[in-house]
Design a binder for these strands. Structure first.
Length: 553
RNA sequence: GCGCCAGUAGCUCAGUAGGAUAGAGCAACGGCCUUCUAAGCCGUAGGCCGGAGGUUCAAAUCCUCCCUGGCGCGCCA
């Protein structure tokens, strides 16, 4: 059992003996200061004020109930009324048994209670290649999905493909114009609302190689449509392969057209209408989103008869909910934050709680090269693609950087920094820790300190402060993941791994593991056991970030 | 004008169920490789947690106001 749970149970029993309930606001946490023990609780502080008692007196009463626990070295009342718990080393040793029993499942939990969650992420318009900003969304969405799965949620991942509407039409028009250039027609500069990127020329060239100039003989609308279809297909293929390369694979690719073409939007509008949430004004159809806290009502159908993007989005989310998910998580670029209230209003209008849709907003990424910001705009065709960045710095490094920042703060992605192989670039630091351990094991087997296939199992002898500290870190792994899942914050995992790697590197430099002296064989095997446990947790953690754990570097 | 996010060491950032003396990396300075990977380790220095009030045993964390930066506020997608 993990330390925190153990103490919580202990305290709860002590409270019952006093006829008290565990207070909502009480906590059990590893304190910052070493002198405050392995775990500390403020339970007495929280309870005393409402009981008219002195916190320290109550703490002392609880302390007396707990005294004599076999795994505890001692319990102290401290400061204004904290209870500080000190474990015996044997308690920490059992963490390693758990690691070996559970292996790649160590750290997993059932905290999510099987909740069905759909994580939608990236969902970039298929009108151009993924750029670096999408990479951040991909890393966050993918890692979050993995963490949620690991913490007992039932997770699907989805990419919403905006394959209809005006932007696709513009894609077709852009390609067609470039295509006509290739056919020798006079080339005006592309209209401003067209996609200007070089990739449009590539698509036009490819189309020309396939079809010759036969598109010239189609009427404009038909030709644009064929260009759009072709471009969409190619770009989507590219997006899929970029994401696969990046280690983020969506289970479901949901096409907007599957809703718009099957009348899904109409159906959803009707159901809103039946609830009296829809009205006509100025020739347009409106959704009364202000009823659910939005700033103003939103148009569903414009006065020209066209449905808005928002209308399709409501239908899309209705579809998601109808598929049986308990909770929807959308990973969005923060520039869409203005869209959040109306979307949550929609979810409420669909008969669900506001929080059944959570929006994880990922702030923008500024790309830095040679100390200068690189400006980016999809439409103007100025951007650095995700694929280029991955080729330049490697997917492991890119993912780790993205996942080392909380998503609601801006991120300066410094290409020169990420290419460095030192602590500027923490991914190597963590990977290096894993490779080092693997290397020690290789040597240990060569020297016969341990059998070729044998997993170490010795647990005694690990009593140095640093050793116990490492064990405590392993003990916290599972709880940390639950926190990351609860707050939708994969970056907590990155920081945990960096700290764990740091503690290991430090230990490694101070204590020899492969001790030649035969009389120290047991200690050597105990330390190998510890290292093996650390390596397992590094592997488990890195795998949740979608980063490799190499055996050599 | 309104709204969202951010403001913590020189730089990049952690710190979200309010906890005890605010952390890490980089950069700076000084040390550690004939022994397990120096992509590493040890040490020194570095702070009015944007500002001002408030809530309480306790605030970087919660509330109010203000300052600065980014983003967003369409019958666009």
């Amino acid at each position: 059992m993990h330390a925190k749970q153990y103490i919580q149970d202990l305290l709860q029993r002590a409270l019952w003996q006093e006829g008290l309930e565990w207070p909502e606001k009480a906590s059990v946490e590893p304190p910052r200061e070493e002198e405050h023990g392995d775990m500390a609780s403020n339970a007495a502080l929280v309870l005393a004020s409402s009981m008219g008692q002195k916190p320290r007196d109550l703490a002392q009463t609880l302390q007396e109930h707990i005294a004599g626990d076999p795994y505890l070295d001692r319990v102290e009342v401290a400061g204004p009324g904290f209870l500080n718990f000190f474990f015996k080393p044997e308690f920490w040793h059992q963490v390693l048994s758990d690691v070996f029993e559970q292996g790649s499942g160590f750290g997993a939990s059932s905290a999510g209670e099987g909740e069905r969650v759909l994580v939608e992420y990236v969902s970039a318009n298929p009108t151009g290649p993924l750029h670096i900003g999408h990479g951040r969304g991909a890393a966050v969405g993918d890692s979050l999905a993995r963490i949620l799965r690991f913490t007992g949620h039932k997770v699907d991942t989805e990419y919403y493909v905006n394959d209809s509407g005006r932007q696709v039409q513009l894609l077709g028009r852009s390609i067609l114009l470039r295509y006509k250039e290739l056919c020798g027609e006079h080339a005006d500069p592309l209209p401003q609302d067209c996609y200007q990127g070089e990739y449009i020329r590539d698509l036009a060239r490819e189309l020309f190689d396939l079809r010759g100039n036969e598109l010239l003989y189609l009427d404009q609308e038909r030709a644009e449509a064929e260009c759009a279809e072709f471009g969409l297909k190619r770009i989507l293929e590219q997006i899929r392969s970029d994401l696969r390369e990046f280690g983020a694979e969506h289970a479901i690719w949901f096409r907007e057209s599957s809703i718009t073409e099957e009348g899904g939007v109409e159906g959803t509008l009707e159901s809103l209408q039946q609830q009296g949430l829809v009205y006509e004004s100025e020739g347009a159809l409106w959704f009364a989103s202000t009823r659910y806290g939005d700033d103003k009502d939103r148009v569903l159908r414009k006065s020209d008869g066209e449905l808005t993007y928002f209308a399709a989005d409501i239908a899309y989310h209705a579809d998601k909910l109808a598929r049986g998910y308990d909770r929807l998580i959308n990973v969005w670029g923060a520039d869409h934050h203005g869209y959040v209230p109306r979307m949550q209003a929609a979810v409420q209008a669909l008969g669900r709680n506001r929080d059944d849709l959570q929006l994880l907003l990922v702030q923008m990424v500024n790309l830095l090269r040679d100390g200068e910001y690189v400006s980016m705009s999809t439409r103007a065709g100025e951007f650095v693609t995700l694929a280029e960045v991955c080729r330049e710095v490697g997917t492991d490094a890119a993912r780790f950087i993205f996942l080392s920042h909380k998503s609601d703060s801006h991120l300066d992605f410094d290409l020169d920094l990420v290419k460095k192989q030192n602590m500027d670039n923490p991914v190597y630091y963590v990977q290096y820790a894993h490779a080092r351990i693997c290397s020690v094991f290789k040597k240990a087997r060569e020297r016969g300190y341990i059998g070729e296939e044998e997993l170490p199992s010795a647990l005694g002898g690990l009593e140095a402060k640093e050793e116990l500290d490492l064990l405590k870190r392993l003990d916290r792994f599972s709880e940390m993941l639950q926190g990351a899942a609860r707050t939708l914050s994969p970056h907590h995992l990155s920081f945990y791994l960096r700290d764990l790697a740091g503690a290991f590197h430090s230990y490694y430099n101070k204590y020899p593991v492969l001790i030649p002296d035969d009389e120290e064989r047991e200690l050597c095997r105990a330390r190998l056991t510890l290292l093996s446990g650390i390596a397992q947790v590094l592997r488990n953690g890195l795998s949740l970030l979608g980063v490799r754990a190499p055996e050599t570097m």
